[in-house]
Amino acid sequence: MLTKRIIPCLDIKDGRTVKGINFESIRDAGDPVELAILYSEQGADELVFLDITATVEKRKTLVELVKRIAAHINIPFTVGGGISTVEDVALLLQNGADKIAVNTAAFKNPTLIKELSDAFGSQCVVLAIDTKKEADGEWYVYLNGGRTKTETKTIDWARQAVDLGVGEILLTSMNNDGTKNGFALDITATLSNSLPVPVIASGGAGTLEHFKDVFEIANADAALAASVFHYKEIEIPALKKFLQPFIPIRI
C-alpha cells in the first residue's frame, strides 16, 4: 500500500541549517549533511533542502552541498531556493538532486514549469507555494519568501501549474508556519482533493496529532516540518509509530 510521507525540511543559509519563526528571526540548527544522515537513518521518507542564501556565491555553495548530500543519502531529496532557469536545474540534478522546487521564478514566468517538465520530467518538478489567508477568508500566493503579496488565489495558481506540468505541490501556510498550532487543514484539503498530483503540507507542525490531522482530515500525501525535528521535540520513529494504527506509513 502506498504510504504517507514524513519529510524533514532543512532550510540552508551559507551551508548551515537554519529555521525561521514566521519566516523571520533565524536561528542556527546545525550541519545539513549530518542532520540529513540522521533523518534518513530514523526513517524519514524524503528530505527537502531550501536554500535561503542570497549571495552571488550561492550557486557554487549549493552545488557543493548537493554533491555532499548525494554522496551520503539513499532516499529521495528535493532542492529549492532561488531556482530560476533550466540551467540551474540541470546543474543540481547532475550533482545528485532528485527533484527541484521552484517558487517565485515559476510564478513570474510560468513557462519555466513547462520547460522543466519537458526537459527533466514532471516527477522532478515540485512547485513550492507560500500562501496566506487574508481577512477576506481567501488564500493568496506570496512570493520572495513570503515578503511579496500577489492578488492570485492559491488554488488558481496551483491548477495552472499542474496543467503546465508540476509533479507535486509543496504548500506552506504562512499563517501556520512557526506557530506549532497545527497545519492549515482547509487549504491543504482544498488542493489535495481537487488536484491530481500529491500535496505536501507544510507549516505549523507542533504535535503528533497535527500530523494525524493533516493526513486524515486534510488528505495530504506528505507532511513536512523543520524545527520540531531539528530541536528533537518530535522524533521521527516515535511519530511514525504513533501514526501507524491510523494511516499507511513506512516503518
Binding site: 500500500m1 502506498l2 504510504t3 521518507d45 516527477q123 507535486e168 498530483v197 500525501d221 506528505a222 513506512r250
Partner: peptide, 10 residues
C-alpha cells in the same frame, strides 16, 4: 487515487 504514484510502497 493520485497519478503518478509517488512515494513508498511494498
Amino acid at each position: 487515487l493520485k497519478i503518478p504514484q509517488i512515494g513508498w510502497n511494498n
